[in-house]
C-alpha cells in the first residue's frame, strides 16, 4: 500500500464510523425524545394516546388516593386544567400534594395518564413557566424557590 492509500483507508474508516454513528444518533433521537407538556397543553394540542410524554404541574390538593396495592392515583394540575394520573411503584421522597411534579408515561384512551416514572422536585426548573405564570395570576405567591434550600422549606413537616 502506498502512503496515500493508507491515509485514504484511515480517513475512509473514520468517516465510516462517524457515518454509522450519525445514523444511529438520528434513529435513537427519533425514538427517545420525550416532549414536555402541562395539562392545558394536552387539552389544547390533543396529544395522541400512546405517545410517550412528560407531564409537568402541581399535584392537586386532596387528589392523592392510595391503597389500591402499590398503585397510587393523583391529579396533576396547572390550575387551569387537571389530568388524572396513575402510577405503580414507590413515590419519590419529595412527592407532596401542592408540590411540583414531573411524570413520564403515556395517555390511555380514557384521558388518564399512566406514568411509569415520577420525579418530584422543589425546583423551579421543574415547574413549567406557564404553570408558574398561571399560578401567580391566581394569587398563589411563589417564593424564590429556585434553590432547593428555599424549596425544602415548602416540604416542612410539623
Amino acid at each position: 500500500m502506498t502512503r496515500k492509500q493508507k491515509r485514504g483507508l484511515m480517513i475512509g474508516s473514520g468517516v465510516a464510523v462517524l457515518g454509522v454513528a450519525a445514523i444511529m444518533v438520528l434513529f435513537a433521537l427519533k425514538d427517545s425524545i420525550v416532549f414536555f407538556h402541562t395539562p392545558s397543553d394536552i387539552a389544547e394540542k390533543g396529544v395522541p394516546a400512546g405517545q410517550r410524554i412528560r407531564l409537568g404541574g402541581l399535584v392537586a390538593n386532596g387528589s392523592v388516593v392510595r391503597g389500591q396495592g402499590t398503585t397510587v392515583s393523583f391529579k396533576v394540575t396547572d390550575t387551569l386544567k387537571e389530568l388524572p394520573v396513575t402510577f405503580t411503584g414507590v413515590l419519590p421522597d419529595l412527592f407532596r400534594e401542592g408540590q411540583g411534579v414531573v411524570a413520564e408515561g403515556v395517555l390511555d384512551g380514557n384521558g388518564t395518564f399512566a406514568a411509569d416514572s415520577v420525579l418530584a422536585k422543589h425546583d423551579e426548573n421543574y415547574m413549567p413557566a406557564e404553570v408558574k405564570k398561571s399560578l401567580e395570576e391566581r394569587g398563589v405567591k411563589l417564593g424564590t424557590s429556585a434553590h432547593p434550600e428555599d424549596a425544602a422549606k415548602t416540604s416542612a413537616q410539623p
Partner: peptide, 17 residues
Amino acid sequence: GFADARIRAADGLVPDD
C-alpha cells in the same frame, strides 16, 4: 399560628395539615 406558618412556608398554598 401553625396554619399561618404552614401556608407561608408553602408560598401561599394551603396545605392539608
